[in-house]
């Protein structure tokens, strides 16, 4: 991270090239890879929003599934029951989970360490039970389906029923969110988050209202997780109570740990690796979770800072010796 911060131009160049590559990719690949990448982008958004609270602020939240699920249900229910258009629906996919994040965060940030982990799991479990049993609203375990409406965004007519349209739309939203999050973590606000992670007591002594900043991080992450859930529902045209299960938060944890927490680029790499691995292994192996488990344990033991952390420390070592 630090090396890119010194060279903002380098980042712009790389980011631009990657996006350009992804924009022209659909012209060369099969439809399946487009849907796979669309899904990948959504999980990337979920993982980087989780990185904001875990990697930067140091709060291990297993409750992100709650916001992901609420985001998913927001667009599904509003479109299905009230015929709301897709753009206001997506906006509400951020706002409604933010309200919930504010509520959950208000209580959760009073706790630290392991207690924080557990209280967030409990909130997610409560949401999952309600989602499972309140079938008239959520469809329970079966879930709900819907068809998003096409809409106009500036010059573009966007039809989410179309695979390519969906791909570009999700790519654009996720890229934008990445830039926003990057801006946040580089801003003074982001520095405060990191100082809380590094030493909460010191941050408090300096005079920061630690709980308030934690809550801010939690709400931002909740809103973006909700957006990820909304985009996911738009991609599948489906939302179910399973979205709310705390193990969904586990996805974000795995991706972030494998890629490297507190780097923003790490979760992107981690999501890419794990999802590709799963979708590759499924061609000849039933137990993909076994491999994911092994990868997770090995990464935690050998490279607790993830792949990006490993590369960074290598590079630093190289620089030091040179």
């Amino acid at each position: 991270m630090s090396s890119w911060k010194e060279k903002p131009f380098g980042f712009t160049l790389i980011f631009g090239l990657v996006i350009l590559g992804l924009v022209i990719l659909p012209f060369f690949t099969e439809l399946y890879y487009q849907t796979f990448l669309t899904e990948l982008f959504v999980w990337i958004l979920f993982a980087i929003s989780f990185d904001l609270i875990f990697g930067y602020t140091g709060l291990l939240s297993f409750g992100q599934a709650l916001f992901f699920g609420i985001g998913g249900y927001t667009i599904t229910i509003l479109t299905r029951k009230y015929g709301l258009g897709t753009e206001p629906g997506l906006l509400l996919c951020i706002l409604i989970p933010m309200v919930f994040a504010w509520f959950v965060g208000y209580f959760s940030v009073k706790l630290t360490g392991i207690h924080f982990v557990i209280i967030t799991i409990i909130f997610a479990i409560i949401a999952n039970i309600i989602g499972d049993t309140w079938t008239s609203l959520t469809g329970g375990k079966d879930g709900l389906t819907f068809s998003p409406r096409p809409f106009r965004l500036g010059f573009f007519q966007i039809n989410l029923m179309d695979i390519k349209g969906n791909y570009y739309f999700v790519l654009a939203v996720v890229a934008l969110c990445y830039l926003i999050l990057r801006r946040i973590v580089q801003s003074p606000l982001g520095k405060i988050f990191v100082s809380i992670r590094e030493n909460e007591e010191r941050a408090r002594l300096i005079g920061y209202h630690v709980q308030r900043y934690k809550l801010i991080a939690f709400i931002i992450a909740g809103g973006l997780s909700g957006l990820a859930g909304g985009l996911y529902s738009l991609t599948l045209k489906y939302a179910g109570a399973g979205y709310l299960h705390w193990s969904v938060s586990g996805h974000a944890v795995v991706y972030t740990i494998v890629g490297g927490m507190g780097t923003l680029i790490g979760p992107v790499v981690g999501t890419g690796i794990i999802l590709s691995l799963e979708h590759y292994l499924v061609n000849f192996l039933q137990a993909t979770d076994l491999v994911v488990g092994i990868v997770l344990v090995v990464m935690v033991l050998l490279a607790p800072k993830g792949i990006v952390g490993l590369i960074q420390s290598r590079r630093k070592k190289g620089k030091a010796s040179a």
């Binding site: 291990l60 360490g113 392991i114 982990v117 586990g250 944890v253 795995v254 740990i257 137990a287 979770d289 076994l290 994911v292 488990g293 092994i294 990868v295 997770l296 344990v297 935690v300 033991l301 607790p304």
Partner: peptide
Amino acid sequence: IEDKPIITIICTFGIMLVIQE
């Protein structure tokens, strides 16, 4: 990793997946 409680949660989560599978 005994001195890093958060990391041990994740590690044992991985162990859980492995044992179950």
